[in-house]
């Protein structure tokens, strides 16, 4: 069994409406090994969710469609599978949890029904065994009195509890890959920490690889082995967590790092934001997509798109000035600062 679980090559996803084409994902590549976690970070609109949903071929079509690339899962290209084969993978080998637990469970079915549905679909078990398994899953995700909870409806659960239920559904068939699209963003801070803790614990138990989409870099440092930094549908930096944490290279990644609220930030310390906003994906982008917002630009940035270069082992960057030979000096964070407003 090869150690490589997922290899995405040059994935392209477009949305067509009338004559306009939105290039939401524009050549994303990465690999993920078994039991490894990868974080996908980037501002909102950078194509993280579209990338993740494409992996399960769940892009709403029309208007969306996967216009190029390969998604090799255990060596098979998912894009060449039949609908039936793809359904056998969804919820079984690869499952997904979404951002908003308040809307991602079906309000008119009991929680038990929703967990058992997956189990009955993918495993040859009796109704009774499915129920047993559902109770066990609820227990695992830390829901008290699972036998009783099984017959309750989602509206009788809190947000954090519902996300636990979603995790129970996602893990009920022992998937090899779990895609978590901002699983904690919609939750209270304290609940966020509990859910993350739970995911970490369960990943050890289930040996599942996780694709963690987040804009909280803290989460990435904590649970991921690799990071993919996305901007305007492109990967602009990709590497191991150690590399990206200690030696981030792309000016956009620097911006992301500077704009994180860290624990040890002082009251009067400054927090930077990246000026400007991401480009309109409906228009052809010439040059580097980040150039209009970058404070290191030269002429070439506006005329030629930078290639992805492996500047160090396991560290790829797409910037004209970050290559094997050249390095860009990171400026002091002085520009575009705003005070942290503490309430």
């Amino acid at each position: 069994m090869s150690n490589e679980l997922l290899k995405v090559e040059n994935l392209e996803v477009q949305f067509k409406s009338g004559s306009t084409v939105t290039k939401a994902v524009n050549g994303v590549s990465f690999t993920l090994n078994r039991k490894e976690n990868i974080g996908i970070v980037g501002e909102s609109g950078s194509g993280k969710s579209v990338t993740a949903t494409s992996l399960l071929r769940l892009i709403p079509s029309p208007p969306g469609h996967i216009s190029g690339g390969k998604i090799l899962f255990e060596g098979k290209d998912l894009l060449t599978l039949s609908d039936k084969e793809m359904r056998d993978i969804r919820g079984n080998d690869i499952s997904m949890i979404f951002q908003d637990p308040l809307t991602s469970l079906n309000p008119v079915f009991t929680v038990g029904d929703q967990i058992m549905e997956s189990i009955k679909l993918h495993q040859k078990v009796s109704k009774k065994e499915a129920k047993q398994k559902a109770i066990q899953m609820l227990q695992l995700v830390g829901i008290p009195a699972p036998e009783k909870r099984l017959n309750m409806y989602p509206h009788e659960f809190s947000g954090g509890m519902r996300q636990r239920v979603m995790i129970a559904i996602a893990l009920s068939c022992n998937p090899k890959l779990l895609i978590a699209d901002e699983p904690t963003t919609a939750l209270d801070v304290t609940v966020q920490a509990q859910i993350l803790e739970l995911m970490k614990k369960l990943q050890d138990e289930f040996n599942t690889s996780i694709i963690m989409i987040t804009h909280d870099l803290g989460v990435v440092w904590e649970i991921c082995h690799k990071v993919l930094v996305m901007y305007a549908g492109n990967v602009i930096e990709y590497g191991t967590v150690e590399e990206i944490h200690d030696h981030p290279m792309h000016p956009y990644t620097w911006g992301l790092l500077d704009s994180q609220i860290t624990e040890n930030i002082e009251d009067h310390e400054m927090l930077t934001t990246i000026p400007g906003s991401p480009p309109d994906l409906r228009q052809e982008i010439k040059g580097c997509p980040f150039a209009p917002r970058c404070s290191y630009t030269q002429d070439i940035c506006f005329s030629k798109a930078p290639e992805m270069v492996e500047v160090k082992e396991k560290h790829f960057v797409a910037c004209h000035f970050q290559t094997k030979e050249n390095r860009l000096n990171r400026k002091e964070r002085s520009t575009h600062v705003r005070a942290v407003v503490k309430s």
Binding site: T53, L56, L58, P60, R87, D88, I89, R90, G91, N92, S95, M96, F98, D100, T103, S104, L105, N106, P107, E117, S118, L121, H122, M166, I169
Partner: peptide, 13 residues
Amino acid sequence: SQDYVKTARSKGL
């Protein structure tokens, strides 16, 4: 277009 419909698809239904 609700999320739970997406969830149902993601289960492999």
